[in-house]
């Protein structure tokens, strides 16, 4: 993935304000995501991570400010243009949001059918290919979502999110509700798919293990804006109280200890400093 000067950012959020009544959630928020990156949004409860993601998805409108996805502003663009954007991204919702009235196959086939460009045989092969990609056995294709376990629902929802070959993937708490074993294999799955296909990922997560093993960059949402934005090591190295609480608690340390080597060293120095002071 070449991040040359000519490369346009996938997401550009500029001067974003979100206000609920009297309560300001985002104040002049800025965020830029470059192609091929895996960016994690972290922040305390009520810091507006999910709201920000919903705004980038165009599900909610910000009070003020602009959001551009693939260089196209979400506000004021022609609906046909917005429809094109929506086909270029995939979203994995927290609970999967599989259509409960449709079997697995139809759930994955739905976005493809909507294009009205492919015949039934092609759609069948494509759905099966996507099931293979997320390691779901083909015999599950005709089951209903209510008959599936949480881990399978997540995988199938991922297959559905990937069916239109998205360039941008949104993950909302990708590992919430999965046991550690499943959550680890789900993270590995996302990682390997991202490495193969090179899509950009933006995710909201509370799970430190997921965060440490997936993210290229971490955006810390606190005090109504993106307080820090950088690699995990860089973010951990700043001594902000929220960051300390979040990453350098007992669970955080355990997760960081499992981080790749270049991460481990600066994290360790910070840990010493913080425990000393």
């Amino acid at each position: 993935m070449s991040n040359g000067a000519t490369v346009e950012p996938v997401i550009e959020v500029h001067g974003l304000w979100t206000v609920f009544g009297e309560y300001v959630v985002h104040r002049d928020l800025e965020l830029t995501v470059m192609p091929g990156e895996i960016v994690s949004l972290v922040g305390g409860s009520g810091s507006g991570k999910t709201t920000l993601m919903r705004q980038i998805l165009g599900l909610e409108n910000p009070h003020r400010g602009s959001i551009k996805v693939f260089g196209i502003p979400l506000q004021g663009s022609h609906p046909a243009l917005l429809k094109k954007i929506r086909r270029r991204w995939g979203v994995l919702f927290q609970e999967g949001a599989l259509y409960s009235a449709l079997p697995v196959f139809e759930n994955i086939a739905l976005p493809l059918r909507e294009l009205r460009a492919f015949d039934e045989g092609f759609i069948h092969d494509m759905v099966m290919l996507k099931l293979d990609m997320v390691d779901i056995e083909r015999r599950h294709a005709w089951k209903m979502p209510s008959d599936l376990s949480g881990g399978m629902i997540k995988r199938i929802a991922l297959a559905r999110a990937l069916v239109l070959e998205p360039e941008l993937l949104f993950l909302d708490e990708p590992t919430a509700g999965l046991d550690p074993d499943r959550s680890e294999s789900f993270v590995r799955l996302i990682q390997s798919l991202q490495a193969k296909l090179g899509f950009t990922v933006i995710m909201v997560t509370h799970d430190l293990d997921t965060l440490v093993s997936l993210s290229d960059r971490v955006a810390v949402l606190a005090e109504q804006k993106i307080l820090f934005y950088g690699s995990l090591a860089e973010v951990v190295a700043v001594g902000h109280p929220f960051v300390k609480n979040f990453f350098l608690g007992e669970r955080g340390l355990r997760a960081l200890a499992a981080a790749p080597e270049q991460m481990y060293v600066p994290a360790q120095t910070v840990i010493r400093n913080s425990s000393g002071g």
Binding site: F118, G121, F122, D125, M126, L129, L197
Partner: peptide, 10 residues
């Protein structure tokens, strides 16, 4: 991508 590849494959 997979769509192009599958079209050829079929």
């Amino acid at each position: 991508d997979h769509v192009g590849a599958l079209l050829l494959w079929r």
